[in-house]
Design a protein around this nucleic acid. Structure first.
Length: 155
DNA sequence: GCCAACGTTGGC
DNA sequence: GCCAACGTTGGC
């Protein structure tokens, strides 16, 4: 089992949006970065825990926990010319982009902000989120870092 | 809204 | 294969 962090802009899709989905589950469409895609395609397994991260917002940070709820499968929004995620180069017979389903587990008792995570850079050394210039929207979290971050929740 | 950092594209 | 131009991400 691997742990993950996935970013979403709350104006587009927030943790509350996920919680209100039928079955508290939705598909995670729109990933258009090869490295992020490869993580989903090659390394994610149903049941893997996921930190839900709010980006591009007043206080960016981890807001909740979800879990991977499917195997990877083709991202159909790439085939839809009306979608903002349309990619004419993705061939339906050989899909370029994949997605997984994500299920809501819980919100954290408080937001663990990016600033707070950066303040623990020493304990979180190697965590992709706090590396300079990081733009990945899907990234692995080591089990050690996962547990450390959850420990911050009670602080 | 600004802009640094990064990924992608395409000319050569 | 290099690299300049461009588009996007996302913190601030």
């Amino acid at each position: 089992m691997r742990c993950w962090l996935m970013k979403s802009e709350p104006d587009v899709f927030s943790i509350d949006d996920l919680r209100q989905c039928p079955g508290r589950k939705d598909h995670w469409d729109g990933v258009r970065n090869y490295q992020a895609r490869n993580f989903m395609r090659d390394d994610m397994r149903p049941g893997d825990p996921v930190f839900f991260y709010h980006s591009n917002t007043e206080v960016p940070g981890i807001v909740g926990v979800a879990e991977v709820a499917s195997k990877p499968y083709p991202d159909h929004t790439a085939f839809d010319p009306h979608s903002r995620y349309y990619d004419p180069k993705s061939d339906p017979n050989n899909p370029r982009w994949v997605m997984v389903d994500i299920r809501y587990r819980r919100k954290l008792k408080r937001v663990i902000s990016l600033a707070e995570l950066k303040a623990h850079a020493e304990e979180l050394e190697g965590f992709a989120l706090i590396r300079r210039g990081n733009r990945l929207s899907v990234m692995p979290v080591s089990e050690q870092h996962w547990n450390y971050i959850l420990g911050l929740e009670k602080a």
